[in-house]
Design a protein around this nucleic acid. Structure first.
Lengths: 97, 97
DNA sequence: CAGATAATTAGACAGTTGTCTAATTAAAGA
DNA sequence: TCTTTAATTAGACAACTGTCTAATTATCTG
């Protein structure tokens, strides 16, 4: 799992987008109207999330629908567990980001 | 849990520091010699980790020892689980960063 | 106290990030 | 095809970040 994932999670707007998507797939416009921010700025955040593979996109007519990619979320959890778990029971698991 | 935590995790050097600390407490110098980076730069990373409350520090003579604060790590995991878990079984859990 | 060692703080600077407005692309419908 | 709607791309710019060298602080020891 890449550095891109952690960098993507480092912005509060993007974390809120992920939270909204956890309730189910939403269109770019639907997401954008929840924030006091221009659409291009939102579009930028979608791009960052896409590049980190945290979300998937699908076009339907004029609209683009985004949805969560839970696989990568699991990878982040595994990384954290590796650190956290290693504290309890030291083992040969290592290898960083 | 604050934005500081995610920003702290967004840098590969800091994630590697956390990984080293998962093996047990280490002094600033001991950590610094593992990286090809000046000591002041390392010191900066320690400060960021401290401000995010991801690590604790303790002085012993001239040396300062850093150790992992697993509590905050657990908070990050809980945040991720909230997103990830909500996907499987939708419930009233929400509230962002 | 003077010198050595461990670590931090101060200040500078290049590169990255998040935001905006303006322009562009893509699709649907009259 | 022209217009409208949905969304992105382009380009600019201020703010933030990670790094460095130089200076400073804190502690130990002779």
């Amino acid at each position: 799992m890449s550095n891109e994932v952690f960098k993507a999670l480092a912005d509060p707007t993007r974390r809120e987008i992920l939270r909204l998507l956890s309730q189910g797939e939403k269109s770019a416009g639907e997401l954008a109207e929840r924030f006091e921010m221009s659409k291009p700025s939102m579009s930028h955040h979608f791009t960052v999330l896409k590049q980190a593979d945290l979300v998937r996109q699908r076009r339907e007519g004029q609209q683009i629908f985004y949805s969560l990619n839970t696989t990568v979320m699991e990878d982040v959890m595994a990384w954290l567990w590796d650190l956290f778990g290693a504290k309890q029971k030291p083992s040969k698991r290592s290898k960083s980001s």
